[in-house]
Design a protein around this nucleic acid. Structure first.
Lengths: 241, 241
DNA sequence: TAATATTTGTGCGTATGTATT
DNA sequence: GAATACATACGCACAAATATT
């Protein structure tokens, strides 16, 4: 009879607690110190167990904050992906949206080019996080030309959606210019926001929205690759050459 | 895997913003509170990042007033430019193409569903590599329904392009159904083919091509994220909702 | 001038991450 | 596994300087 390592037994115990909904998505687990007391083992043994759960995607840790239950991946491993499919046209525009920050500053070179304004001309920078059931889906950074859109800053602060804010600023009709897609690795802060590990693959979408008064938004969206997929609609009559 | 401290990642991000002239000499940075919201970290962590920038002489703080840009950074290591642009419609169909392998086997479940054939029905699997100036661009795996396309195996072996092979098999008119895009991490063999390190971000495109006789190709393409960007063409008349 | 709000500066306690012994 | 040490990070509270009204 082989002896089961302590950390495996502990991992199994916590796994049961999660399965039994004693802890649910977003909850904080007891501290490592508390768990080490409860199970009567060293903190490192607890850490070994939590590491295993982390690799299973069941929990994730935030240094200085605690260990938290990840979104219910176990129950709906496939369905979760399906639910979070994002349409490219709706990229970064899911209903639940958290405003992270808003600032007005000078336009950098690429922003100025995309928005067809002078470098240094004021832009309103919007930082947001798209959520679905508290699970972060995408990180959004958008630049708006301040002089072309009077009152856009207040509109963004008061409206939950970018579309609504643009409408409040007088733009109710705009089209998306060609979208540029590429895969990139998550940096430390992106990983923090999206609840993935540093270096995890992200899908980055860059696009410009244009109305009849000119470009109104230069937006970049980072999607958590593990949890989201973009569906690109294609013209059914289009020919593949 | 080296984990970058958050404060270093934040310092680097702000350093870039200064280098890109988003903030210029004399400007006031957003408040520590605003930055802590934008990056999703505690104010102490922001302060640590700002302290580093202060020690570099890039910024200085005035208690009660704010943090200001001391000087512009002119020299900055420019990131590798994206050298290759691929149109999504041409995904995996660039001129230089290397045939890696060709095999006939039974259809797996997802292939059967996509191609609308029975699981286990014969499919011809095509493994190829897209190149540009000897640099690998994308790894391509396509499945073709063997019974629906008599002679497709020989056609693929003899033709350099998939389009030509399909034409040789009697299909000269097909359309691409909606494409699914997501970011994934490169596994060991993909990394080898694409000349990237294992774990590097890849852009994965999955799509089905349909002709009047039914689905003719279920293809998956992995693009090297560091070297490629997909440009999604949009209907200029399309509305963003 | 005075009151109030904002912003940076500082301290303390606690939690996680990692390395060493 | 156990014990220790240190770096990183969070959360709260409050003081000090500045800005705003």
């Amino acid at each position: 009879m082989t002896k089961t390592p302590l950390w495996q037994a502990i991992a199994e115990s916590v796994r049961r607690d999660i399965a039994d909904k004693r802890y649910t998505a977003g909850d904080k687990l007891p501290t490592e110190a508390a768990l080490s007391g409860r199970f009567g083992v060293n903190r490192h043994t607890i850490r070994r167990a939590l590491k295993a759960l982390g690799e299973e995607g069941l929990v994730f840790a935030r240094r200085g904050a605690g260990v938290f239950i990840a979104s219910d991946v176990t129950e709906y491993p496939i369905g979760r992906r399906v639910r979070f499919h994002q349409n490219l046209r709706a990229a970064g525009r899911s209903p639940a949206k958290k405003l992270l920050a808003l600032e007005t500053r000078g336009a950098a070179q690429p922003e100025a080019e995309a928005l067809r304004i002078d470098p240094g001309a004021p832009v309103v920078a919007y930082f947001g996080l798209s959520l679905s059931d508290d699970a972060p889906i995408a990180l959004v950074v958008s630049a708006f030309p301040a002089e072309r859109l009077p009152g856009i800053s207040d509109a963004l602060a008061q409206n939950t959606s970018i579309t609504a804010a643009l409408a409040a600023a007088g733009v109710d009709d705009y089209t998306r210019a060609s979208t540029r897609l590429t895969a990139v690795a998550a940096d430390a802060t992106q990983a923090l926001h999206l609840h993935v590990v540093e270096g995890a693959p992200l899908l980055r979408s860059q696009s410009v929205n244009i109305s009849d008064i000119g470009p109104v938004e230069y937006g970049t969206t980072w999607f958590a690759g593990e949890r989201t997929a973009l569906i690109v609609e294609e013209d059914p009559d289009a020919q593949v050459r």
